[in-house]
Design a protein around this nucleic acid. Structure first.
Lengths: 246, 246
DNA sequence: ACTTACATACTTGTATACAAGCACTTTGTT
DNA sequence: AACAAAGTGCTTGTATACAAGTATGTAAGT
């Protein structure tokens, strides 16, 4: 667990429980904590140099996001990626992002959103750089930022938060995909296309492009599952009982 | 705080933290804990007869749902209802429910869903009874159940969970509305209409009716705000600083 | 050889003790 | 009388101690 560290040894700006939450969440999404792995409160507490109390509070939040599952008196499980969960999460993400991107296309105004445009162009440039360097972790972050900028045009913080949670799940899968297929440049191209449609105030085209963009995950899913079967569940619900490789 | 009680004095079926969560959440939504009210961990712990540990874990979950806000070293605030939060939440609810209800209308099959139909008819009957008795708390529960049955047809548990959280916010508002305007029968009528459209596999009409059904909240909002100004925030974000009545 | 019972070393769940910070009161000064 | 500053009692944040349950290994019995 030596890869788990807090941002600063004695940083009082945020409560320890929040810092632990951020650190563990990042580790789960980057697959440093592997789906199916057991973790233990004492172990985490020792690694991070804090007591069990903030650890438990962080775990509780991650259980709410279904990234962890507590098995009482046995330990805590990093949840498997299940096909069902991915499909469910993808549907929600699509519904919300489609709605928000439509708003973005509707309200986009070249004159009033010069700053936003600069942000987007910068983001796309950074994405290209990350793609050139084949840096999957960084690329995922930038991809998320790009989506957040557009979503921000809908002026709905709650939506940003919900989409953030949904992405928590999907990103583990997307991380595997990026590491395997290195298709980052294709994704950036799609981002460019989508933004062009928004700039043209073309709501229908924006929605169509975004739907394709998000939908690609469904086709890639079965492939990546064969590459990392140990991270996936076969059955319907998330459970410790049945695993792909048993 | 004497209205706060756990389901059973010594029920080991669920962890205390979960029981506390359920009890406090219910109290917030039914406005027994009022928006803007301060609560304290010690006070809750004494009322419920447990230690601060499970209390804190429950509070953490409710903070994640934005029903509570912890002010460090000062206490915990029952969040105000803000216009912004209501609009944001309503948008998400609409996007998700519209998507799911469309699926329901598409997949509905009289032959294969006899059981579901029975559930729905029962639910509508119960709703009428609650409306007759003018029982707002019960009606809200039944309303939620009705929506959940339909949403269940989309076969997406994650969506059920997200909608559940969004409703946590809206229900405080809806509770005020029901107490004030007693328009439960109108709501049941709309439910009947929506279900008829689903039975007819009429996706467009289902979506149209549901959109109207959910949209009514937006019109009622300014009215109810005048009745209970002390529960609402004037400003953009949820914050303890600015209040309607200051 | 196989099963069963039990001791043991873990785990999480809960309670309590201590630390640090905010708010108000009270006291002292001008 | 007005105001500033220290003190007191509250709050949440964190650490630790204890309780209860699970899995495992071992030894005894069949």
């Amino acid at each position: 667990m030596d890869f788990l560290t807090l941002p600063a040894p004695n940083d009082a700006s945020k409560p320890l429980s929040t810092q632990v939450y951020d650190a563990v969440r990042e580790a789960i999404i980057c697959l440093k904590l592997k789906p199916g792995q057991m973790i233990y409160e004492n172990e985490l507490a020792e690694s991070l140099g804090v007591s069990r109390t903030p650890i438990r509070e962080a775990i509780r939040s991650l259980v709410n996001e279904q990234l962890l599952e507590v098995l009482p008196q046995r330990g805590t499980l990093v949840t498997y990626v299940s096909e069902r969960k991915v499909l469910e999460t993808r549907f929600i993400q699509a519904q919300l992002e489609l709605g928000a991107f439509r708003i973005a296309a509707r309200v986009w105004d070249e004159h009033n959103q010069k700053l936003t445009k600069q942000l987007i162009l910068h983001s796309i440039r950074d994405q290209r750089a990350a793609a050139d360097n084949n840096n999957a972790a960084l690329f995922l972050q930038l991809d998320e930022t790009f989506h957040r900028i557009i979503l921000g045009l809908a002026n709905n913080d709650t939506l940003l938060q919900v989409v953030y949670h949904m992405r928590g799940h999907l990103n583990r899968l997307r991380y595997m995909l990026l590491e395997e297929y290195h298709h980052m440049h294709r994704i950036v191209d799609e981002h460019v296309e989508i933004f062009a449609a928004i700039e043209a105030n073309n709501e229908e085209r924006t929605a169509q492009l975004l739907d394709d963009h998000l939908g690609k995950l469904n086709h890639e899913f079965p492939e990546i599952r064969k590459v990392h079967p140990q991270y996936f569940l076969r059955n319907i619900r998330n459970s410790v009982e049945w695993r792909e490789d048993k």
